[in-house]
Design a protein around this nucleic acid. Structure first.
Length: 309
DNA sequence: AGGTTATGCCAAT
DNA sequence: TTGGCCTAACCTC
């Protein structure tokens, strides 16, 4: 269940271990057989993330576009290089998975199953694998995506055009922020809903939405046009900060009140990572008022009714 | 074994 | 606004 930070980490993993190699592309599950055949044997030239979308550019111009949706994930096997300096590599990215990466040698990892037994390489596909991308030393398996298709470069550019700015890919952070401000204040829709609209700003999901609004002490139900431009600007820059941190750590940790030790504890314990997300009924960490959970456009919305008044 | 839930999004109504 | 997609973990029974 990825928000923007996960997809950027996946793009990094591809750049570290698969870009530059001719890939064997298959669809063990069978549902993507035609698409796989189209790019099988070609060299992977690029891997880029914009918002929650991943674009894998192949020799010849075709692009594999992948969106993980609610429960998609990539599993990496074989050589799984650290994505962030000094950080152990992980074998699974996306929805929570039982399998975990285990260090094997200099920057090398292999996956172990729940039984702890090492698997051989390349491992037989387990379960519903939509696509397997295989380089000589590294394999990436995709399961449960909401979108997985081969398109040409023009179509890929069109998808990106329809997305709002992403702090990682925006050429000018400040200018991109003004685009987001204009799009938010032009609408009467609640700001909590607008932050989740990928055409307004790309990459924010339900957790970052709840946490950004708490950090801004802003009521999610405030209509976009009633939010001061300066406050939208601040939220955009805060999003850039949280996204960069999420890419580094691989976790959504939004508690700016924690010191280094507190951060380390929160990274190990998901219950300590957030201000309000997933804390319905628990006391607000600032004022003690029970955190509210409501529905907003079919998604759960968490907020403190006192701090975010 | 079966039901529920999830960090998402689209088409149909 | 509703239902569907699609996968796996995490309950409860």
């Amino acid at each position: 269940m990825p928000e923007g930070h996960t997809v950027h980490r996946i793009a990094r993993q591809f750049r570290a271990d698969l870009v530059g190699h001719a890939l064997r592309v298959s669809s063990p599950q069978g549902r993507f057989a035609a698409g796989a055949a189209r790019i099988d044997g070609r060299r992977l030239e690029s891997a880029t993330a914009v918002g929650k979308q991943l674009f894998l550019g192949f020799e010849g111009g075709d692009v594999l576009r992948v969106h993980l949706g609610l429960y998609g994930a990539w599993d990496f096997y074989g050589r799984v290089s650290p994505v962030v300096a000094g950080q152990e590599a992980r074998g699974s990215m996306g929805a929570p998975r039982l399998r975990r990466a285990v260090r094997m040698g200099e920057g090398e990892t292999a996956l172990r199953g729940p039984d702890g037994g090492a698997e051989d390489f390349p491992p037989p596909p387990v379960g519903q694998v939509r696509v397997r991308l295989a380089a000589p030393e590294s394999v990436a398996d995709l399961r449960g995506p909401t979108a997985c298709e081969v398109i040409d470069e023009d179509a890929a550019a069109l998808v990106v055009e329809r997305l709002g700015p992403d702090p990682v890919t925006a050429p000018d952070l400040r200018a991109a922020g003004e685009v987001v401000v204009d799009r938010v204040v032009a609408r009467g829709v609640p700001v909590g809903q607008l932050l989740m609209e990928q055409s307004v700003v790309a990459g924010i999901g339900n957790i970052y939405r709840a946490e950004l609004l708490f950090r801004a002490r802003l009521d999610p139900w405030t209509p976009g046009r009633h939010v001061p431009r300066e406050l939208v600007r601040a939220i955009w820059h805060d999003w850039a900060v949280l996204l960069a941190d999420g890419i580094e750590t691989g976790a959504i940790l939004t508690r700016e009140d924690l010191d280094a030790d507190g951060r380390a504890r929160a990274l190990a314990d998901p219950e300590q990572r957030h201000w309000v997300y997933g804390r319905a009924g628990l006391p607000c960490r600032v004022c003690g008022t029970p955190v509210l959970v409501e529905e907003m456009a079919t998604r759960k919305l968490y907020r403190c009714p006192v701090c975010q008044a």
